[in-house]
């Protein structure tokens, strides 16, 4: 089924997640995110932010409820189908970049396309385009260890966008950056969203949420306690 533009990109219905006998990380969460939205998820440590992100990325499964992304029931996918889902429909950006230190910047960016078996020429052109657009093209042949934090995060974003995923997940993307680099990444995410990229952003950084998000929710003990749409950005 081809998802219609009118349908939300993300649809969480009564989603709960508990680990062993501990308290619920998420409890009866209902959430819809429209295409083109930039959703910031705020909340204290242990509130369920990372659990939500993992469920959206297909890295974890809910104990109860349904998770649908881009028309696909993510919670029912096999391991292999989950991998294919991540490969094609989700891009992920992490606090500590998670670039592979032994690959060059270009090789890092190419990796999702290579795993998907994309044609070499087309993948190379797409990687070059992304590196150019994100301002790190001159570093294509160097290893990530020689870049600044902000540059590394730009490379990570380029890698996340390589397969043109409808959804970009960002986990504390400025958490490991100095303020100048943080502002740099903030601008980048805002620009991407302005171009129509749907973003879910987990952060403690209120400034980041205010700058980038079109909508902000706050989680406390696995429940949404606040859901605010930005009037204007």
């Amino acid at each position: 089924m081809t998802p219609s533009e009118a349908e939300p990109l993300i649809d969480l219905s009564e989603v709960g997640r508990t680990y062993d006998d501990g308290p619920a990380a998420l409890a009866g969460l209902n959430l819809r995110v429209a295409r083109g939205e930039a959703l910031a998820v705020l909340g204290p440590s242990g509130s369920g932010k990372s659990t939500l992100l993992n469920l959206l990325a297909g890295l974890d499964r809910p104990s109860t409820g349904h998770v649908t992304v881009d028309g696909l029931r993510v919670d029912t996918l096999s391991e292999t189908a989950s991998a294919r889902y991540r490969r094609g429909r989700v891009g992920m950006v992490f606090q500590f970049f998670n670039l592979l230190d032994d690959l060059t910047v270009l090789d890092n960016v190419l990796l999702p396309a290579q795993l998907a078996g994309a044609a070499r020429g087309r993948a190379a052109a797409r990687a070059a385009e992304l590196l150019e657009r994100l301002g790190v093209a001159r570093h294509a042949r160097v290893r990530p260890g020689r870049l600044s934090g902000g540059e590394r995060q730009r490379v990570a974003v380029a890698r996340a966008l390589m397969n043109r995923p409808p959804l970009l997940l960002a986990d504390e993307p400025t958490g490991a950056l100095d303020s100048a680099s943080g502002a740099d990444v903030r601008d980048l995410l805002r620009d991407l969203n302005a171009e129509g990229q749907t973003i879910v952003l987990v952060t403690h950084d209120l400034a980041l949420a205010e700058a980038c998000a079109t909508r902000t929710i706050e989680l406390v003990d696995g429940r949404v306690t606040r859901d605010v749409r930005a009037v204007a950005r």
């Binding site: 991998a83 991540r86 992920m92 998670n98 670039l99 592979l100 795993l115």
Partner: peptide, 10 residues
């Protein structure tokens, strides 16, 4: 973990 996050299948 990174490989899997980028879509490497089992």
């Amino acid at each position: 973990g990174v490989f899997k996050a980028l879509g490497m299948t089992p």
